[in-house]
Design a protein around this nucleic acid. Sequence first.
DNA 1: TAAAGTAGTTTATTTTATAAACCAAACATT
DNA 2: AATGTTTGGTTTATAAAATAAACTACTTTA
Lengths: 94, 94
Amino acid sequence: MLPVLNPLLHSELRLAIISTLISLEQADFVYLRKQTGATAGNLSVQIDKLQKAGYIAVEKSFRGKMPCTICRITQEGVDAFEQYVEALKEYIVK
Amino acid sequence: MLPVLNPLLHSELRLAIISTLISLEQADFVYLRKQTGATAGNLSVQIDKLQKAGYIAVEKSFRGKMPCTICRITQEGVDAFEQYVEALKEYIVK
DNA sequence: TAAAGTAGTTTATTTTATAAACCAAACATT
DNA sequence: AATGTTTGGTTTATAAAATAAACTACTTTA
């Protein structure tokens, strides 16, 4: 039997967010929008889900006078991602 | 920008079906149920979608007196899967 | 012949993803 | 100084997808 794919990570946009944060360890909302091509609303919702799961940490501050939302991956997020990738390999590597 | 993941393949169950058929090139409904752990209803629906997309070919026959649904991957399905895997690598390989 | 099992399909429900609408503040224009 | 536009989001509504539950049709077994 094929392993279960963590449903929180098996979503294009959430995977894109995590994937970006894995190699960058910090990115703001605007950067994530550009990197993922997502709409602001969708990005906002998915960031929220990842935060509630403890996979990312979100810090709201200001850059100058503009609001700025900074995201970082947590250790829990790194672990979940690595497990997800291992499971995924069972599907895509013969 | 990260590439788009074919939404038809970026689904745990449909990916499991295609993944199984890639290495087996033929499998019946019962085997797919065991391999994926899916319910019969869900499997039926997802097989249908893959067939309508032209990614698999479905042949209904009888084994003795029991109905038997045999699935095979098509060339279109192989191509789509390979493209999907390439896109996915952008997400999971740093 | 009644009950239970097999191989599915159809339909209804729940969950998820996505888009559209909105908000508050900043900046730029006339 | 009001008016419109852009930025950086959030909230809410809608569409699409996954899943489960119910059903069908037939077979096997007791």
